[in-house]
């Protein structure tokens, strides 16, 4: 098992290098002079020269890449053009709201989606199953900001139950935190619930046809135990995979949701950076999110070996 974990961890290195290379090349391959683009329409030649030097664009490309990777390995993501603060510091300042929003969304989605999917599979072909599937397609199709505005319109403007926007840290009081996080996490969950419910239904449906389920039923096992112990546990590998793969889409959703609800997290940081063309921030955040995704999926692969001892690569 340790051999497998070690091999799997080493395999993430080339993938991370590809990500770093792509992120590096986006700036270099874009048409026109990147320094001019970043400086904007009203920049003086001196500004452009300063940005060019700051980004190291006056050096050969290969050298730029090597020195950039060298700094990355030391955890240096560069320095913001406008605030002159290290990108890592900015990420640190904005990490909490994004983390709390993502965690709340994932926990809530899994708690809702896994039972929904399992029940849909158990009652497959009935109206319960069809309702769950329709809700799932809806979750895939309604853009998170559209849903967000509908929720704000209903729960904040009409019913006045929840605040329209903003973020409160759990440190300010757990009740206050949940009142603020409820609508953004709810809007963001729709897609994730759809994704996880669909895969849960499909994998439980498949497992329910297995011989050992028939055996369990034949020996008089209670139906709830058949579903929870025998079916769900054996269906867990694809479910956990999708939870991991869904994180990429979740990150995209977080960026949008933070804009809709004015949450001062990493998503706002990236959107503000786009508007100001603060390229080191954009670059640093794309890297940060991509590496996070790679590491989370590494973690999930390791979880597999615990869930399903048959899996050995």
């Amino acid at each position: 098992m340790w051999m497998f974990i070690g091999r799997r961890a080493v395999a993430t290195i080339p993938v991370m290098l590809v990500v770093a290379f792509v992120v590096f090349m986006i700036l270099r391959l874009s048409p026109g002079d990147p320094a001019t683009v970043i400086a904007g329409d009203y920049a003086s030649p001196a500004d452009i020269a300063r940005i060019r030097a700051q980004l190291g664009l006056d050096q050969p490309v290969a050298l730029q890449f090597v020195s950039w990777i060298g700094r990355l390995v030391q955890g240096d993501l560069g320095i913001s053009i406008f605030s002159n603060l290290p990108v890592t510091t900015l990420i640190g300042q904005r990490l909490e709201p994004t983390l709390m929003l993502s965690l709340t969304t994932v926990v809530f989605s899994v708690l809702v989606a896994v039972p929904l999917g399992a029940v849909a599979a158990w009652k497959s072909g009935t109206w319960i199953d069809r309702t769950v599937m329709v809700v799932a397609v809806l979750g895939f199709s309604v853009p998170v900001f559209v849903l967000g505005y509908f929720l704000v319109y209903g729960f904040s403007l009409e019913l006045k139950w929840l605040p329209v926007q903003g973020y409160k840290s759990p440190a300010d009081g757990i009740g206050l935190f949940f009142r603020h996080i409820a609508l953004p996490a709810g809007a963001l969950s729709a897609f994730y619930i759809a994704l996880v419910a669909r895969i849960t239904r499909a994998s439980v449906l498949e497992v329910l046809e297995e011989d050992y389920i028939r055996t369990a039923r034949a020996k008089g096992q209670v139906e709830s135990k058949v579903l929870l112990v025998h079916a769900l546990r054996n269906a867990s590998v694809p479910i956990v995979t999708v939870i991991g793969l869904g994180i990429a889409a979740l990150i995209g959703g977080v960026v949008i949701t933070e804009s809709v609800f004015n949450i001062p997290g990493l998503g706002r940081l990236v959107v503000d950076a786009i508007l100001k063309r603060d390229y080191p921030i954009i670059q640093g955040l794309i890297l940060f999110f991509s590496f996070l995704y790679i590491l989370l999926n590494l973690l999930i692969d390791i979880v597999y070996t615990v869930l399903d001892p048959r899996i050995r690569y």
């Binding site: 990500v19 792509v22 889409a249 990150i251 995209g252 960026v255 990236v270 999110f289 790679i294």
Partner: peptide, 15 residues
Amino acid sequence: DGLMAIPGILLAIAL
């Protein structure tokens, strides 16, 4: 694998 690891929306925004 590398391209898939980059959140699509962020890549598109940067481009």
